[in-house]
Nucleic acid binder design. Structure first.
Length: 417
RNA sequence: GCACAGGUGGGUGAGUGGUUAAAGCCAACAGACUGUAAAUCUGUCCCUCCUAGCGAGGUACGAAGGUUCGAAUCCUUCCCUGUGCA
């Protein structure tokens, strides 16, 4: 079992569920902050924990370039490297096939990238992307896909979708042959008498001193965390505890292609399915339409992950449509650019009108930032180009997103009596 | 008082006779941002008018005058600033 998905309640199309991964149980619907280079920009891990982030993203392409998979692996995988004990999902680099279009060349075998860091050439294939993701050791990893650009004509969308389907099969084949090579398994920590270790060590929640001398490079984790390793729970005991590889549906903006992509991906068989290739420039209404129609073709009993969305309103909407997982750079990036999401709409904190505003950013928000700092101060920090502006803005935006999802879960829990 | 060096749009600072309303940078203002090449990117940034355009006027490079078809750029006088010497 690579992951388990227990639906606790359904309401309309929406589902309240628990996704059990090697490092954590995740309550869904869930919003996943993006931490491309093993860092959710401007926010330290302990703050992410405080904010209630259950799972964060990392990016295979970026981490492969720097610091390199081998380095991360030696540190016990991403969890050890960045000292994050909850769940992690890595994107395969498929999105970079789309976003780095100036720096790459795609063919059937894979993608040749020119590094944006130093111009060096690197080749990514479904196999190498899997190898890298296994080495990074996230709880959930993604097939190597081609994120189809928008607009794409019918022929292009079909060809792209079909290649993604072939790449998905190759991804899975490689993964199945190598899935036990995760950092947690191949570099086992010394046996601990007090830890029944189905996954062979790696990340140690209890953080006592045993093993510290022999593997000093693997950080120990704080003890007072209310999350626990799912692999230690009864549901995982004695079972095969590996990463979960999710498939990705493409197909551009064509419903029929999306249906076909879903069917072909399901036929290959994955423990979870993502909807990719959206939020690439198409009108929002079209995004929603494609999401809704694609969801119809995905298994009801498996987690569904909508990649790369959205605004606070949109993530609520998608959760209600039956999406279980979402990620988006919008809250973190917008925060760094001075755009803050509040219960009363968007605020551009750089505007002069906030200079004398002594009130909180969002009077209805309970986050540390809104509890403590004024709009005037936040505006000043931004105008002064202070790093603290980025930190506080990002904390607020993430808090707002995470709370938004929490409310969705709360509403689902109490829905229908 | 004398001798040098200077005075350019909110700030800095290019430009030393001809697409110069005047580069660049900063500040200011507005907008964008959706599996992160993003602490980024766009736009506005002297005034007035409209048919809103690489539109029409006006004003502008310390001040006033002059040379020239044409001056921020050359000349004269004055004012101011910095440094040095008395």
């Amino acid at each position: 079992m690579s992951c388990a998905f227990h639906i606790e309640k359904k309401f309309g199309s929406a589902r309240l569920a628990r996704l059990i991964t090697p490092h954590a149980e995740i309550e869904t619907p869930v919003f996943m902050p993006v931490g491309t280079v093993a860092s959710v920009k401007a926010v330290p891990q302990e703050t992410l924990e405080e904010l209630g982030a259950q799972i964060i993203l990392g990016n295979t392409y970026h981490l492969y370039l720097r610091p390199g998979v081998a380095t991360v692996r030696k540190m016990g995988g991403l969890h050890g490297f960045m000292s994050w004990r909850r769940a992690i999902l890595t994107d395969s680099g498929g999105f970079q096939v789309f976003s780095l279009n100036e720096l790459r060349k795609v063919n059937e075998e894979g993608v040749m990238f020119r590094s944006h860091l130093d111009g060096s050439s690197h080749f990514f294939s479904p196999e190498s992307a899997m190898e890298a993701q296994i080495g990074l050791g996230a709880d959930i990893i993604m097939v190597f896909d081609e994120c189809t650009e928008y607009p794409a004509d019918a022929g292009r969308a079909r060809a792209s979708m079909e290649m993604t389907a072939r790449w998905a099969a190759r991804s899975k084949a490689y993964f199945e042959a190598h899935k036990h090579e995760v950092p947690w398994n191949i570099e086992p920590r010394p046996q601990r008498s007090d830890l029944s270790d189905a996954c062979g060590g790696g990340t140690d929640l209890n953080g006592e001193t045993a093993g510290a001398a022999s593997e000093p490079q693997v950080p120990r984790f704080a003890r007072n965390d209310n999350f626990h390793l799912a692999r230690d729970s009864s549901r995982f005991q004695g079972q095969d505890c590996t990463q979960a590889l999710f498939g990705i549906v493409q197909g551009g903006m064509d419903r029929a292609l999306r249906k076909e992509s879903a069917e072909r991906t399901i036929e290959i068989g994955f423990p979870g399915y993502a909807i990719g290739g959206l939020s690439v420039g198409e009108p929002r209404e079209l995004t929603r339409e494609i999401v809704e129609s694609t969801l119809e073709h995905l298994p009801k009993d498996k987690p569904r992950y909508l990649m790369g969305v959205g605004t606070p309103e949109e993530i609520v909407e998608y959760a209600n449509l039956g999406v279980d997982m979402m990620d988006c750079v919008l809250p973190t990036r917008a925060a760094r650019h001075g755009l803050l999401f509040t219960s009363k709409g968007k605020i551009s904190i750089k505007q002069a009108r906030y200079a004398p505003d002594a009130g909180p950013l969002d009077p209805n928000c309970g986050c540390r930032v809104c509890q403590r700092y004024s709009r005037a101060y936040l505006r000043h920090l931004y105008a002064s180009n202070e790093v603290l502006a980025q930190v506080l803005n990002t904390i607020h935006n993430l808090s707002y997103y995470l709370d938004t999802m929490k409310k969705v879960r709360g509403a689902l829990a109490s829905a229908g009596g």
